[in-house]
Deep mutational scan, measured.
Amino acid sequence: GHYRIRINGREFEIRGISEEEIRHLEEALRNGADEKILKEIVDRLRG
């Protein structure tokens, strides 16, 4: 998958993330885990 997200007015492209991972992120966001989720995304993109 290849997705664009906007955070604090800046747009980011996220590549190589699966539909299942996105559902997991959405679930966590609904549970209020904003900073933790951003850290997970950044860590994943770093490799």
Rank of each mutant, 00 (worst) to 15 (best):
21 E>F: 04
30 R>W: 10
38 L>H: 01
10 R>V: 15
29 L>T: 03
19 E>I: 11
42 V>T: 04
37 I>R: 07
44 R>S: 12
6 R>M: 15
8 N>S: 04
26 E>T: 07
43 D>C: 13
40 E>L: 08
1 G>M: 06
25 L>H: 00
26 E>A: 06
46 R>I: 15
9 G>H: 02
11 E>D: 13
3 Y>R: 02
26 E>N: 07
45 L>E: 02
16 G>M: 05
40 E>T: 07
23 R>C: 04
1 G>L: 06
23 R>N: 11
34 D>F: 11
18 S>R: 05
24 H>Y: 12
38 L>N: 01
41 I>L: 12
34 D>I: 10
44 R>W: 13
17 I>T: 03
22 I>W: 12
42 V>H: 04
26 E>V: 07
28 A>E: 06
24 H>K: 12
6 R>E: 15
17 I>F: 03
42 V>M: 08
29 L>S: 04
38 L>P: 01
16 G>S: 07
16 G>Q: 06
33 A>S: 05
7 I>M: 02
31 N>Y: 07
24 H>V: 15
9 G>T: 01
6 R>T: 15
9 G>Q: 02
6 R>C: 07
6 R>K: 14
20 E>L: 06
40 E>D: 09
40 E>P: 02
44 R>Q: 15
16 G>P: 04
33 A>P: 08
45 L>R: 01
15 R>T: 09
11 E>H: 05
24 H>W: 14
15 R>Y: 15
8 N>Y: 07
23 R>Y: 12
11 E>R: 01
20 E>I: 08
16 G>H: 12
46 R>K: 14
13 E>A: 03
1 G>Y: 11
26 E>P: 00
15 R>I: 15
35 E>R: 04
5 I>R: 00
6 R>A: 11
3 Y>V: 06
41 I>G: 00
36 K>P: 03
26 E>R: 04
7 I>F: 10
18 S>K: 08
34 D>L: 08
21 E>I: 05
12 F>Q: 01
43 D>P: 01
44 R>G: 12
5 I>G: 02
16 G>K: 04
22 I>K: 08
37 I>N: 06
23 R>L: 13
41 I>E: 02
6 R>S: 07
46 R>Y: 13
30 R>F: 12
16 G>F: 10
6 R>H: 14
10 R>W: 08
24 H>N: 12
17 I>D: 02
43 D>N: 08
20 E>P: 07
8 N>C: 05
31 N>F: 09
47 G>C: 06
3 Y>H: 03
46 R>L: 15
29 L>I: 14
15 R>Q: 13
4 R>E: 04
22 I>M: 07
4 R>F: 15
17 I>E: 02
40 E>Y: 04
39 K>H: 08
39 K>M: 15
21 E>D: 15
2 H>V: 12
18 S>Q: 06
24 H>M: 13
11 E>W: 15
18 S>A: 07
45 L>M: 07
40 E>G: 09
24 H>I: 14
16 G>C: 08
40 E>I: 07
24 H>A: 11
16 G>E: 06
29 L>Y: 06
27 E>R: 07
28 A>M: 14
22 I>S: 04
3 Y>Q: 01
1 G>C: 14
33 A>K: 06
42 V>W: 08
34 D>K: 05
3 Y>L: 05
37 I>T: 14
10 R>D: 05
4 R>Q: 08
28 A>Y: 11
29 L>N: 03
42 V>I: 15
3 Y>E: 02
47 G>N: 11
31 N>L: 09
38 L>K: 02
36 K>R: 12
9 G>R: 01
30 R>Q: 12
19 E>Y: 11
20 E>R: 05
22 I>N: 01
35 E>Q: 07
12 F>D: 00
44 R>M: 11
6 R>L: 14
35 E>M: 09
22 I>F: 13
13 E>N: 05
32 G>A: 06
20 E>Y: 07
20 E>T: 11
13 E>V: 15
32 G>W: 04
14 I>Q: 00
11 E>V: 15
25 L>Y: 03
37 I>V: 14
7 I>P: 00
21 E>S: 09
31 N>V: 11
19 E>H: 11
31 N>E: 12
25 L>D: 00
22 I>A: 07
28 A>C: 12
40 E>M: 09
1 G>I: 07
37 I>G: 07
23 R>M: 14
25 L>K: 00
40 E>H: 04
29 L>R: 03
1 G>R: 06
18 S>W: 02
42 V>F: 11
44 R>I: 09
9 G>Y: 01
24 H>G: 14
28 A>R: 06
42 V>K: 02
34 D>R: 03
1 G>H: 09
14 I>A: 01
15 R>P: 09
35 E>D: 12
1 G>V: 08
9 G>S: 01
19 E>D: 12
5 I>V: 12
3 Y>N: 02
27 E>T: 12
31 N>M: 10
2 H>M: 10
20 E>M: 07
7 I>G: 00
4 R>I: 15
39 K>E: 14
46 R>Q: 15
22 I>Y: 04
32 G>N: 10
11 E>Q: 04
9 G>D: 05
30 R>E: 07
29 L>H: 04
45 L>Q: 02
19 E>K: 11
21 E>K: 03
13 E>C: 10
41 I>D: 00
33 A>T: 13
4 R>S: 10
29 L>V: 14
38 L>I: 13
12 F>I: 11
13 E>F: 13
5 I>F: 05
46 R>A: 15
30 R>G: 08
28 A>S: 08
14 I>R: 00
29 L>P: 00
28 A>I: 09
24 H>R: 11
41 I>Y: 05
7 I>S: 00
2 H>S: 15
7 I>V: 08
36 K>I: 10
9 G>P: 00
39 K>D: 04
39 K>N: 11
5 I>S: 00
38 L>W: 07
47 G>V: 12
30 R>H: 12
39 K>V: 08
4 R>A: 04
36 K>T: 12
43 D>V: 05
17 I>H: 02
6 R>N: 15
31 N>R: 10
26 E>I: 09
29 L>E: 03
45 L>I: 14
32 G>T: 04
9 G>C: 06
47 G>E: 14
31 N>K: 11
30 R>T: 10
19 E>G: 10
27 E>F: 09
14 I>L: 14
24 H>E: 12
19 E>T: 13
17 I>S: 03
47 G>K: 06
43 D>Q: 05
13 E>T: 11
18 S>V: 04
16 G>V: 10
35 E>H: 09
13 E>S: 04
6 R>Q: 15
9 G>E: 03
8 N>M: 05
32 G>L: 08
46 R>G: 15
19 E>A: 13
28 A>L: 15
14 I>G: 00
10 R>P: 00
38 L>C: 03
46 R>E: 14
13 E>I: 14
35 E>K: 05
